[in-house]
Amino acid sequence: MRSLSLHAARTTVASALLATVFLAPPASASAAAAAPVCNGSTAPTFGTASPYTSLNNAFTTYGNSNARLDDWTGADSTYSVKLPDGRTVFGFSDTFLGEVNDGRRPLTIADGGTTPFPNNTFVVRSTSGAMTTAHGGTVANPTALLPPRAPSHVYWAADMTMNGGELQQPYREYWIRGAWDVKFTKNVLARFSTSNLNQPVSVTDLPSSRQIMWGSALLKDGGYTYIYGTEDLGTAGKHLYIARVSGTDLRGTWTYLTSSGDFDSTSEAAAVRVLSGVSNEFSVSKRGNFYILLTQDTKDAFSTEIDTYLSCSPAGPFTDEKTVYRTPETGAGNPNIYTYNAHAHASMTTSNNIVVSYNVNSLDTTEGTENDNYKNVSIYRPRFINLPVSG
């Protein structure tokens, strides 16, 4: 099934790496260098993370109770942004829509329904907690918000931000050349009116000459919007790059962090690596005088570690790596299950708690309804955790 191949290819380089999946050991902090001191402030400390039960239950209830062809039953990426009217928009990449029957996703009408599979969607949560799905096309024929320009291409979501009253979201385009052959092609920016989230106002190209997937994380700080990107070199690792734009409109002029340590070039070719071991999706947030980079560790294949790094600047250097959570789903009872692309949600974070999501998927290549992601709807859904923070 194409859907499963896409997800496996996002996070791994070959099915042979499945042998590295292991049961998650108990959570504990990893050894790290001394934390930075920023403007005389001591570093924040993290408590013991735990499942965000009410939010997990809200998505479970919504995903299981759907009775329409265009309703969300599961997805990955899981970015979010708060709209001016108080609604929260969750941005997803590959998405299962349709009905759920006895905890399963049906493939065809003969199975009791059908399961559309657009490559990007929104779930909009109202201030009362009610959820709806935003997609392209129609109720009878739902499509992606950004339909692919060719059958073998997809647009996968990156981080989200508000520019005044409009929602802006970068997307990464990929060319699916085979089950384990996915090639990044370019970055684009979609702009959405908050009054119509089912169709972008415009889609424009973003810098893409370096094969850097921009938009892994976005951060507004000091009159700039910082744009973090990932260079995915497969077995050669994943590396962080940083650009920024003045103001909040990502269509502005980008400048890049260069070897000088400053954002002094408008040429993407001048951008330099800042950190290795990040994921294709992560987050950067500000707390007091500190900047917290949170990512799923990718230095080891199928890692269960969700790690934090600290910096005194949005441009790094990011140091003091700590493991703040280990995902319990990886390999637990099923060696095909893995987790990936953790990030924090500024839209829900408070003064003493960071809300974090990560994705769960399966490497099962079984065709038909006995595939893991069809026979068990709970697998292919985000998980949310609460990460206590102080200082």
Results as ranks from 00 to 15, higher is better:
G252D: 11
G252Q: 05
T253G: 09
T253C: 09
W254M: 13
W254G: 11
W254P: 04
T255R: 04
Y256K: 09
L257V: 12
T258L: 02
S259Q: 09
S260M: 01
S260F: 07
S260R: 05
G261F: 00
G261C: 00
D262M: 13
D262I: 13
D262V: 14
D262W: 03
D264H: 06
D264R: 08
S265C: 06
T266Y: 06
T266I: 11
T266R: 01
S267K: 03
E268V: 09
E268I: 13
E268R: 07
A269Q: 14
A270C: 07
V272Y: 02
V272F: 02
V274R: 13
L275H: 08
L275M: 09
S276P: 00
S276T: 04
G277E: 15
G277C: 10
V278D: 09
V278I: 14
S279W: 00
S279V: 05
S279D: 03
N280C: 13
N280F: 13
E281A: 15
S283P: 00
S283Q: 03
V284K: 01
S285W: 05
S285N: 11
K286Q: 08
K286P: 04
K286T: 02
N289K: 08
F290L: 13
F290W: 04
Y291T: 01
I292D: 06
I292C: 12
I292R: 06
I292V: 09
L293H: 03
L293K: 10
T295S: 12
Q296D: 11
D297R: 15
D297T: 05
T298F: 06
K299H: 12
D300V: 12
D300Y: 06
F302D: 04
S303L: 01
T304W: 13
T304R: 08
T304K: 05
E305N: 15
E305G: 04
E305F: 02
E305K: 14
E305A: 10
E305C: 11
I306G: 03
D307E: 11
D307Y: 06
D307F: 02
T308D: 07
L310A: 04
S311M: 03
S311L: 08
C312P: 06
C312D: 07
S313W: 03
S313Y: 15
P314C: 05
P314Q: 00
A315V: 02
G316Q: 01
P317K: 04
P317T: 02
F318K: 00
T319R: 10
T319M: 10
D320Q: 09
D320G: 07
D320E: 13
E321N: 14
E321H: 08
E321W: 09
E321G: 07
K322F: 01
T323C: 15
V324S: 04
Y325G: 05
R326S: 14
R326D: 07
R326C: 09
T327H: 10
T327V: 12
T327E: 06
P328D: 04
P328F: 09
E329P: 01
T330M: 15
T330G: 01
T330D: 15
T330R: 12
T330H: 12
T330A: 14
G331M: 15
G331V: 04
